[in-house]
Amino acid sequence: MNSAETIDRLLREHGRTYADEAGIALRDEPAPLYQLLVLTVLCSVRIKADIATAAARELFAAGLRTPRAMADSAWQARVDAFGRAHYVRYDESTATALGKGAALVVDRYHGDLRRLREEAAGDAEELRRLLREVPRIGPVGSGIFCREVQVVWPELRPFFDERSLAAAGRLGLPHTPAGLARHVPPEDLARLAAALVRVSLSKERPRTVSR
């Protein structure tokens, strides 16, 4: 199976973004961008991705879809949402981190992460640095946010984080962002990045995709 066939199968079988799984209709607007930030925080600990996305859905179902709503919510309400999603072990610390992060977004960016984008001025590394100022988000989390948000922030394209590039290499695919980008249209880059991550996290060995 050549690279084009492998990528086609990846997109077909695994090409659902984590934002989509969490029920986020991603647009370049304040609420969905903040929801992606919440998902990023939830994914930034050692916990299964499906539990993290389930926790995001529970928070959003509870009305915590904006930084103001999150900042004004009770800490226990966040913990309870995590309990419904079986997001345990990190529930209390993550509930605290979400409250502090929401306050930061409200105070510094007036609730609108497009202001963070403007501050980064098209520099992906600066964007990642600013994201790391949000409680709980580190290098891995900033990569998660960027690989998903490239759908609506095209200046980041092509963005593949370390995990997705490593998975591409194990599959015999180009393992640079530019190399991978030659095989898909711009609108599919986030889907391909997510597919590579999903395969890397699968209990199956990544090479089975290329059979």
Rank of each mutant, 00 (worst) to 15 (best):
G122C: 09
R114A: 07
A71W: 07
E155Y: 07
R84P: 07
T40Y: 06
R65P: 00
V151K: 03
G15P: 12
I47S: 13
V184A: 14
R12H: 08
A62I: 02
L39K: 06
H175Y: 05
L39W: 11
A77W: 04
P154W: 00
Q76P: 03
G172W: 02
T53R: 03
Q150S: 09
R191H: 10
R27M: 04
D123C: 09
P154M: 03
V79L: 11
R207E: 15
E155V: 01
L171N: 11
A181H: 08
G23A: 08
D91P: 02
I7Q: 11
C43Y: 03
H110W: 06
Y18W: 12
A166V: 08
L33F: 07
A181I: 01
R129V: 00
L42V: 08
E162A: 15
R108Q: 13
E162C: 06
D123I: 00
R182K: 14
G172M: 03
Y34C: 02
V184T: 05
D161P: 12
L37K: 08
W153M: 13
S164G: 07
R65T: 12
Q35W: 05
A81G: 03
A54H: 10
W75Y: 15
E148D: 01
A77R: 15
A4N: 08
A55E: 14
V106T: 13
D161E: 08
C43Q: 12
V199C: 02
D107F: 00
P67V: 12
Y109C: 10
Y87A: 01
P67K: 01
R57L: 03
I47V: 13
W75R: 15
V151L: 13
V134I: 15
P174A: 02
W75T: 02
E118R: 12
E125W: 11
L26I: 11
R65A: 15
G23I: 14
I51H: 00
R205G: 11
E119H: 12
R27L: 10
R207H: 11
H110A: 15
R108F: 10
W153N: 04
A74T: 09
D28R: 14
P177I: 00
R128M: 09
R147S: 06
S202P: 05
